[in-house]
């Protein structure tokens, strides 16, 4: 079981990285989504796949019996929600950037670090 999940998360992370390396801003963001999914899986499996029973204490018991590890689940739950918030915000940001700059090519979005022939001090590119 661990082999199947490990392979799947490896593929997801590879695909996410590949997309994140793209010049296209939107593909880059989708890459981040995949990376987030892959890392969640990694976090989840590092807590061991001990049981397929949910970690809920029985009605007449005081401690957890045989069940899955609750700690990684809590961590991944937090991670899912936070990465959702992060990506929603990034998407709106990306949309705004694309509308302002008129381009979704990452190699062209460089107002902060402009190219220049001047070796010492890069000049700012003209506002478009």
């Amino acid at each position: 079981m661990i082999w199947a999940i490990a392979l799947a998360l490896g593929i997801v992370i590879a695909a996410g990285t590949y997309l994140a390396l793209s010049r296209d801003l939107l593909r880059c963001l989708i890459g981040l989504v995949l990376l987030g999914n892959g890392i969640n899986l990694l976090l989840f499996t590092s807590g061991r796949l001990s049981s397929s029973l949910p970690p809920v204490i029985g009605a007449d018991e005081m401690v957890l019996g045989v069940a899955a590890n609750p700690l990684p689940q809590a961590l991944v739950l937090t991670a899912i929600v936070i990465s959702f918030a992060l990506l929603c915000f990034s998407l709106v940001l990306a949309l705004r950037i694309i509308q302002l700059a008129g381009s979704d090519d990452l190699t062209r979005l460089r107002a902060a670090e402009p190219t220049s022939q001047d070796a010492v001090k890069p000049a700012l590119e003209e506002e478009s």
Partner: peptide
């Protein structure tokens, strides 16, 4: 290549951690 290497290394990490 870079992406594959990254994914593969993390797969190996997960398998060994288990």
């Amino acid at each position: 290549a870079v992406a594959t290497a990254f994914g593969a290394s993390l797969t190996a990490l997960v398998l060994l951690v288990a």
